[in-house]
Simulated scan of single mutants.
Amino acid sequence: MIAAIFLILITLLVPPIGVYIVAGCGADLLINICLTLLGYIPGHIHAFYLEYVYFDRREQAREGRFTAARAPGVYSERVQSGGNGYGTIVQPVQ
């Protein structure tokens, strides 16, 4: 909980640092840097969207629910999987 609040405060000040913490160094970070340079608000929107997807997927995994569909506009496997593993989540058999 405190880590999430700290991440939000960092993202409010400098959006690319928040994206780097959640997604690492990759396409999402590059996109966020470009959006932040184009305008401060688009960088914030992108950063908070990535953080929302990350924490939502993380909570779903804790509850045992797994989303098969990829979140649009998110290129980081770490964000897609909610930080679980390397993007490889075994889907439950139904």
Rank of each mutant, 00 (worst) to 15 (best):
69 A>I: 08
74 V>E: 00
42 P>R: 09
57 R>Q: 09
60 Q>F: 00
30 L>V: 15
7 L>E: 12
82 G>H: 04
37 L>I: 13
94 Q>L: 15
36 T>L: 10
53 V>D: 04
19 V>W: 08
84 N>M: 13
4 A>T: 01
66 F>D: 01
55 F>E: 09
50 L>G: 04
70 R>V: 03
70 R>F: 04
8 I>M: 06
69 A>Y: 02
80 Q>I: 03
86 Y>A: 08
39 G>I: 06
83 G>A: 11
29 L>T: 03
16 P>M: 06
19 V>E: 08
38 L>D: 06
12 L>V: 14
85 G>T: 05
76 S>R: 01
54 Y>G: 05
64 G>K: 02
6 F>L: 15
48 F>S: 08
43 G>V: 03
11 T>L: 05
79 V>H: 00
88 T>E: 13
77 E>H: 07
66 F>K: 00
4 A>G: 09
51 E>I: 15
86 Y>K: 08
63 E>N: 10
43 G>N: 05
70 R>G: 00
92 P>Y: 07
5 I>S: 02
25 C>W: 14
84 N>E: 14
6 F>K: 15
31 I>F: 03
92 P>H: 05
2 I>A: 12
70 R>N: 07
87 G>V: 10
63 E>G: 06
90 V>G: 05
53 V>S: 04
92 P>L: 04
87 G>S: 03
42 P>D: 11
43 G>R: 03
18 G>L: 04
33 I>K: 02
71 A>N: 01
83 G>N: 11
64 G>M: 03
32 N>L: 00
54 Y>D: 00
83 G>K: 09
77 E>G: 10
11 T>V: 08
15 P>I: 07
50 L>Y: 01
73 G>F: 02
56 D>A: 15
46 H>Q: 11
53 V>L: 07
78 R>I: 12
39 G>A: 08
5 I>N: 01
93 V>K: 06
61 A>V: 12
24 G>K: 12
39 G>K: 09
84 N>R: 13
20 Y>V: 05
55 F>A: 02
35 L>F: 09
35 L>V: 05
75 Y>V: 02
57 R>N: 13
34 C>P: 11
39 G>V: 08
33 I>T: 08
60 Q>G: 03
48 F>R: 05
12 L>Y: 10
7 L>H: 14
9 L>Q: 11
25 C>D: 14
1 M>P: 11
81 S>P: 05
11 T>C: 02
22 V>P: 05
5 I>V: 12
58 R>Y: 13
26 G>C: 13
73 G>T: 00
49 Y>G: 07
8 I>W: 09
7 L>Q: 14
92 P>W: 00
74 V>I: 04
32 N>R: 02
94 Q>Y: 13
18 G>E: 03
69 A>Q: 13
71 A>Q: 06
70 R>C: 00
17 I>D: 10
84 N>F: 10
42 P>Q: 07
33 I>G: 04
21 I>N: 04
